[in-house]
Design a protein around this nucleic acid. Sequence first.
DNA 1: CAAAAAAGGTTGCGTGCACAATCAACATTT
DNA 2: AAATGTTGATTGTGCACGCAACCTTTTTTG
Lengths: 204, 204
Amino acid sequence: MTKKEALLKAAKELFGEYGFAETTFKKISERAGVALGLLTHHYGNKEKLFLAAGMDVLNNFLRVLTRATSRCTTGREGVLAFCRAYLEFSLDPSSYWLVLVRCSPYSDMKVSEDCDIMFRKFAEVHLLLEEQIRRGMEDGTLPTLPAAATAQVIVALMVGANRTRVLTPYSYTVPHLYEETLRFVERAVSLPNTSDMISPASER
Amino acid sequence: MTKKEALLKAAKELFGEYGFAETTFKKISERAGVALGLLTHHYGNKEKLFLAAGMDVLNNFLRVLTRATSRCTTGREGVLAFCRAYLEFSLDPSSYWLVLVRCSPYSDMKVSEDCDIMFRKFAEVHLLLEEQIRRGMEDGTLPTLPAAATAQVIVALMVGANRTRVLTPYSYTVPHLYEETLRFVERAVSLPNTSDMISPASER
DNA sequence: CAAAAAAGGTTGCGTGCACAATCAACATTT
DNA sequence: AAATGTTGATTGTGCACGCAACCTTTTTTG
């Protein structure tokens, strides 16, 4: 591992633990075991460093989601696989997901122009889910829905469930929040079962 | 308005605009039009000031939610009124909702023991929704659901939808996100309509 | 190939600034 | 005359970032 990589790793750890404002150059360089000056040399300034860390996490995230959905045979399965992969990723410590929860252009940091590439990346996440929804409407596993809006609602639910789980003290959270979240999505995108006794015949 | 109140108002404005870290004593006292020293005199330190601001917002929030749900005649209506009131409150600039979105023990700030009263207040919000769900299961307007978990999921959806709407640049958000969010909830808590052609007779 | 030179990586101390919090003096109210 | 409210200059701290010196690797050149 090069020193540049060690710095990025340390940055991901610390941004996730302490948030943007409370993470200092000193802490990062110490945890990475390199000289303080290397930070500005490699990454310019603190904001750019954060951007590098955040984009790294986001790229892995998108890769995982893409892989998870590509394995599904129906649109409905794709949607549920998307949600499952989202929540699973956020629980994996090695994903450094906390970086995006704690800092991010969403709360802590002032949104600069550079941040736009993060939003664009997030837009790709939405688009991926949107595709699954469209697919589900075509293959008949999902009801007729406004695809883009529904995708955004589902992602919003993932965001909220994740924040609740990760940032709220344990004693205030319900035991099986994620499982219940998935069931909630399933119900919200279930087919109207008016033709309950007809459709089972359509199995191949 | 006393100077103490002016300070709290300015604090709510600025915490919401800039977040905790980027809001300074100087900015606050200038916007409030009072001397800098009054801040520590009245509120002790920055964290306590934030706590005062956040709790003020939270108390109004809980009051609004309570009023909105108390007017409903069924549990299902209560749940939907809760959601509508939640989202509406978050859009009202005079509610200073952004304080809780931008700072909050959820992201920016380090969680101290003092923050616990905020979590307890939030727990009351969950409890309020949970009551509506229980009521709906009793009066038959909602299906059988795990009340506490479902309440937490719905609040999570509110959190996420709100963050998407408020923190994401306009160009990346879908036009009617909130309306679609409400429809999503309606579908997720709808009664199984297996007895579609029987129940319409049960109208009074 | 060796010597020289350039380029890039690495060091940690120095600098200047922005900030939270203090404080002593002054004003107003009780 | 005591208590409480109000002032803003001052203080000390912690920080991001600059910088000059040093080390290591690659490139150039006779």
